[in-house]
């Protein structure tokens, strides 16, 4: 057997070597460009840490900004403000996004579904500042002032398409057999959707939502003329509120050296928050999968 097979297995020397060489070349290119793509990512992280970590201290998390000329102070109001804005945005943005996604996955056929899907895709690509302008005319002009409400609505509008499409795609990934199993057990369609399809897709949807949250947490442009900014604690949902991204912008373009330092610190803190959100989302999913 082996003697007969030998001539078959011995490929012509040159073609085999050529193939090997090509393989090495393409492999090398892939690795090189991957590393190249990682350079900006890691330099951003490194630079932020190097410049920002020095400005992070207890006062940064607990104190209000000091007036111009006084050193020290912190960004407590911006940290709380960002949390409030993102929390409210979730409250406004997740329910419509989730329900639209369920609709598209479970009963969305025909014209209306196409329109919704297309709108969501377009909305996902709209520059965030455009959303800011839209909410400015919708809420800021009608209410007569910048407000936390307007900022949260702007962020919510940015979240909706991501949540919608994530929900739809993940619910579609749930095998049709599971829906049939539910229907075959005499469950009404709505219970199958809620307790089987949505339940099965939930870990993935939760990750998608976390990523959407992480994205809007770093948005600056739509907040500039909706939530605006506030040097003090926010006084209510109808009042302007300070947020980390806007504060970073304000401080970074200021002429004061200690403000620059604070902007670096704020940027560092923001990135750490977003990293934590992302990692939590991923761990959540990994945990679920392992549990199976």
């Amino acid at each position: 057997m082996s003697t007969r097979a030998a001539p078959l297995l011995e490929a012509s020397d040159s073609s085999y070597k050529l193939r090997k060489a090509k393989d090495r070349l393409i492999r090398g290119l892939c690795v090189a460009f991957t590393l190249l793509a990682l350079v900006p990512l890691f330099s951003v992280l490194y630079y932020l840490t190097a410049r920002g970590i020095g400005g992070v201290n207890l006062a940064f998390f607990t104190e209000l900004p000091r007036p111009v000329g006084e050193t020290g102070g912190g960004m407590a109001n911006s940290i709380v403000g960002s949390a409030q804005l993102v929390g409210l945005a979730c409250l406004f943005g997740i329910p419509p996004g989730l329900l639209a996604g369920i609709y598209l996955a479970e009963s969305g056929k025909g014209g209306l579904a196409k329109v919704i899907r297309f709108t969501a895709d377009v909305l996902a690509g709209v520059p965030s500042i455009t959303v800011g302008v839209f909410v400015y005319s919708l809420l800021v002009l009608t209410l007569g002032r910048f407000s936390m409400l307007a900022g949260a609505v702007a962020l919510a509008v940015l979240m909706v398409p991501t949540v919608t499409r994530t929900t739809e795609e993940l619910m579609r990934l749930v095998p049709e057999q599971l829906r049939e199993a539910g229907l075959g057990l005499g469950l009404p369609r709505w219970r199958v959707t809620l307790k089987i399809t949505l339940r099965t897709a939930l870990p993935g949807i939760a990750t998608g939502i976390m990523l959407a949250v992480a994205r809007v947490a770093g948005e600056t442009a739509p907040l500039l003329f909706t939530a605006f900014s506030n040097r003090f604690w926010n006084d209510g949902i109808d009042q302007p509120v300070s947020s980390l991204p806007v504060q970073i912008y304000t401080y970074a373009v200021s002429p004061f050296e200690d403000w620059h330092q604070q902007a670096w610190a704020a940027a560092f803190v923001l990135v750490v928050f977003i990293l934590i959100l992302n990692i939590t989302a991923r761990l959540l999913v990994r945990h679920r999968v392992k549990g199976r």
């Binding site: 095998p175 057999q177 599971l178 049939e180 199993a181 539910g182 229907l183 075959g184 057990l185 005499g186 089987i196 099965t200 199976r292």
Partner: peptide
């Protein structure tokens, strides 16, 4: 469907 049960081709327990 509660009176007439069904077992499918591919086993489909809820994961």
């Amino acid at each position: 469907r509660r009176h007439i049960g069904m077992v499918f081709q591919k086993p489909n327990p809820f994961p």
